[in-house]
Design a binder for these strands. Structure first.
Lengths: 263, 263
DNA sequence: TCCGAGTGGTTCAGTATATGAACCGATGGT
DNA sequence: ACCATCGGTTCATATACTGAACCACTCGGA
């Protein structure tokens, strides 16, 4: 593995649950020698990507990431556009709405909004990476990925997270055909046992999938009526988002969506 | 220089003015061999720090920086706290307010807010790095930096940006004594000829300077009354920000500020 | 139509650069 | 007093990085 990849992997160790970590801890988690880890962290620190805080000299993410994120938002304002839309989706459906983006072959949580309505709701803050085969967002993305990328994903082992998780690649492929014919993806209890969710894919200007928009509800609340409302709102939001953000929806999917909105 | 440093430097090539760049262009700007640059960008891409967009295969910042920025904000909510405060400052003073943070030995723009009031105002969007000797924010930070770091900054050449820029290290040191005795820094026309600004330093939980809060006005609008109002609002905002964010203001400075607020 | 000057991207020998075991001194618990 | 941590450093070893030269392609003249 390249040195740069190791350094960047170090940045991936941080999470909401673990906002700061010590040198030895980082080395252990990343599987690096302590000296190597120290040098890498040093280089990251020199550029402001991490900083050392407190008496324990723990490392945490630095201000450089904020600056870069602001630049990314200036170049590709997906997040800024999506946040109000997520709030609206959460409001209209009464369930948790979230946005994920394809990042280095993984599907990762980018933003989310909770409904005011219910006391119980699906929480998103602790979810980092969404598995392709076990989530509606993952299926939505996977269905519209180029075959090569799809094959790469399905070549990996597909862990069974719950007893309802589909772990056979061919069965997943069958689900993808379904997704493409419906224009949206659905998954019930395959990621978390009590969660039922619907998702639609998002595209960039070249028509490549970039992520997914989804709404997740507790299984026990997911009635037929709610399913329909979520699907409609989701498609409307995705059309708007793809439109505003210059996303090029594949013609057949666009046709499906238009049909769904009329019916 | 380490490989990682080179890769991170590559990320610094992006700016609002240059949101995307080609391979050759990046190599040229970073002073790297094209092959090396390609490999580094490849590693950054594999982790989602950059992505290739469009038919021209230009590179731009990727979604990974958004995720990391969200984590940084969760750990150190400086920006979230500061933004509303900046808006208020801009509103109360009628001038541009901005926040900068110390990052790898440089002082960089993090956030800003414009006043609704005036048609002419100081623009911040294109300013990236603030020079220590030529800006009020820089002086405010420099005054409270540990001597070693301060010496390092003053050992570098101090470019004269305007005819009012102080480029003699000793003269700058004299200004810093002034800053420390006043509790805020001021600079008129030393960064941009038509800009007059005031700034106060911000601190972390260990009492180390982390950045500055500043208000900048066109020189021709900066009357004595406005100066006084800006200074008061700035100090009030800094006290609040340091307080909320757990920043430990050095005792003598805290005393100065309290005195200024009473008088 | 051909040419030259740009692209983005790849190869591979040579060497600069990263690596990791062993080592500090400090701290904290038993 | 001991042991097990911690963050950080050293230096001989060898691995992973470098860069000149090379593709194939596109574009705008001449």
């Amino acid at each position: 593995m390249g040195t740069v990849a190791k350094a960047l992997e170090l940045l991936d160790l941080f999470s909401r649950a673990r906002p700061a970590l010590g040198l030895s801890e980082a080395a252990r988690l990343a599987g690096l020698n302590k000296a190597t880890c120290h040098r890498l962290l040093g280089e990251l620190q020199a550029r402001g990507f991490v900083e050392q805080a407190g008496a324990a000299r723990e490392y945490r993410l630095g201000p450089a990431v904020l600056r870069l994120a602001a630049l990314r938002e200036a170049a590709v304002p997906l997040r800024a556009m999506a946040q109000p839309m997520l709030e609206r989706l959460a409001d209209e459906t009464g369930e948790t709405a979230h946005l994920s983006a394809l990042e280095a072959g993984r599907l990762r949580m980018l933003a989310w909004a909770y409904p005011a309505e219910h006391v119980t709701r699906v929480m998103m803050a602790d979810t980092d990476t969404l598995l392709f085969h076990a989530t509606s967002s993952g299926l939505a993305v996977l269905a519209y990925l180029p075959e090569a990328a799809r094959a790469a994903v399905l070549a990996e082992p597909l862990p069974r997270l719950t007893e309802r998780t589909e772990s056979d690649p061919d069965a997943v492929r069958a689900r993808l055909v379904e997704v493409r014919s419906q224009g949206h993806a659905e998954s019930a209890g395959s990621f978390e046992a009590e969660v039922h969710s619907l998702a639609v894919p998002l595209f960039d200007t070249e028509g490549a999938v970039t992520g997914a928009l989804a709404v997740a509800a507790p299984v026990m609340r997911m009635t037929g009526a709610l399913r329909g409302r979520i699907r409609d709102r989701l498609i409307a939001a995705a059309m708007e988002l793809n439109d505003q953000g210059g996303g090029a929806v594949p013609p057949d999917l666009a046709a499906l969506w238009r049909g769904a909105m009329k019916g």
